[in-house]
Design a protein around this nucleic acid. Sequence first.
DNA 1: CTAAAACATAAACCTAACTTTAGGTCAAGA
DNA 2: TCTTGACCTAAAGTTAGGTTTATGTTTTAG
Lengths: 145, 145
Amino acid sequence: MYTIGQVSEMFGLPISTLRYYDKEGLFPTMERKNGIRKFGETELEALRVIECLKASGLEIKDIKLFMQWCTEGPTTYPQRKELFERRREAVNEEMDQLRKTLAMLEFKCWYYDTAIAEGDEDRLQSMLPDKLPPDMQALYDIAHS
Amino acid sequence: MYTIGQVSEMFGLPISTLRYYDKEGLFPTMERKNGIRKFGETELEALRVIECLKASGLEIKDIKLFMQWCTEGPTTYPQRKELFERRREAVNEEMDQLRKTLAMLEFKCWYYDTAIAEGDEDRLQSMLPDKLPPDMQALYDIAHS
DNA sequence: CTAAAACATAAACCTAACTTTAGGTCAAGA
DNA sequence: TCTTGACCTAAAGTTAGGTTTATGTTTTAG
């Protein structure tokens, strides 16, 4: 069993954040002794899942719902599995979006590289997509799709 | 030249958002006629860049700075290029993070699939990393790295 | 036993990025 | 002429996800 300060160290999270998560119902079965929180293995695994679900874009109130399901035993396995599948889809979509963003950024890096090398603004300003080098045209197409 | 309503349609952005961007200084050279905003090609390209930089995680106040640089001509090419390079690095790091998140999500999907199929909570609860199937162990390792 | 460190709560505060509201201008069509 | 629709501003409101503050209690080290 760990204190809030120890868990704060272990996860690199402020104590205030752990208390906030608790207040929001993210540790529904956490025990206390004289009012003092006792983090067990259940809460540590909960925190790992919280970080994952947060990184996937899930809101705190929906993470709370998931944690409730975890207290209800195997009957909620299907809901839990579906939640993770929807999160997986959401993350895949976000990665697609980031790939487009990356294409745009790489195109812009190339653009300014060329502009700096040529020291000529006007020629670049009027550059048309079909006059780009093939690899840059590919990036341009991804970025503008 | 387009009105704010037309641009709102074209980009799928609320009019209020476009006005907000303007107020924050994201269209430093936009013209007006009788107080009415006139969006030109410069502003449309600005909006494409804004969407890209926002998707890369840049804050509005920093996007404003970039737009200022754009009004200052070729002397700011180096700053602009460096900004895009830092954004590229940030996006690459975010994609790495998302790959780990995805590994965790896929592991959890598999976990619940197996749990539902076996209908046995306790056997899974005590599952150790080195007893997982090889492909799941790989996911587990990525997710917990 | 006592002092400091670590814990606790409730409630106010914070920030970013918008959105809504209230009130006003202006151009075009019936 | 009137009224409708699209535009304008300033300022207040909203939301998520915390953080800070003020105050009080418990644990721990000497």
